[in-house]
Amino acid sequence: MIYLEVINIVKEFGGLVANNNVSFQIEQGEIIGLIGPNGAGKTTLFNCIVGFHKPDSGKVTFKGKDITGFKPFETNREGIGRTFQIMKVTTGMTVLENVMVGAFCRTDKRNIARAEASEILSFLGLEGVKEYHINELPIAIQRKAGLARALATKPELLMLDEVASGLNHKETEEVVELLRRLNTEKKITLFLIEHIMEMVMSVSQRLIVLDGGEKIAEGLPGEIVKNENVIKAYLGEKYAKSH
């Protein structure tokens, strides 16, 4: 059985084709990178999978079940978690409370939700900031809090929309380390959109490339950097030469 299968997804926004016949498959346990220039349709594709957008046509199946047109909360309950490229900076709840909300998805008991949230926060090294409101924290920590919140729902497939953007080199390395741990220790399949090439190349086992709404390439990182379409569309001559 195919783990996640995306078949011929089309999504238009008033004439602008943001996703055009995109198809691919993901296997359980993989780490897959999704790359492409700005406006390529990466976030849109995520939204079509998790249900924030209903694709105009095409199909999404997860573990053999057709989840096309499911609502976001329904795809989450199927086991798909996601983080946002732009996290709303909210003032109403502390980091701990945010993560507890995630944990509440699997329990009705506050004590259990709190214990699970605390566990995840310490897994991510965030115990120190749990009583802060998200708007009081630096961006790197905010992104981690967003990740913690998604993790608290116990996803088996986690879709990350640019978790490392805005982070410095050291912070990025930490995130890479963290993602590897999630994959190996928690057995979470990862599907990530990323702009930082070094990062996505090093962490992903396989890459999918979008450009202008279409999938233009798919393969191992080593193949992708040599792929002519990709070089033309996205990576630029410089990167190709230097590798």
């Binding site: 998790v50 924030f52 609502k71 976001p72 909360f73 989450n76 309950r77 978690g81 996601r82 946002f84 996290m87 709303k88 909210t90 003032t91 109403g92 709840m93 409370e97 945010n98 507890m100 909300v101 995630g102 509440f104 998805c105 009705d108 506050r110 939700a113 919140r149 998604a150 608290a152 729902t153």
Partner: peptide, 26 residues
């Protein structure tokens, strides 16, 4: 205010899209 529903509502108020992505039927 300490119940699951209380927490979920506060999340919806803060960021409804995020709430939905956390499995909440807003």
């Amino acid at each position: 205010r300490k119940s699951k529903l209380g927490y979920q509502l506060r999340m919806i108020k803060d960021d409804e899209e995020a709430a939905e992505s956390l499995g909440i039927d807003a």
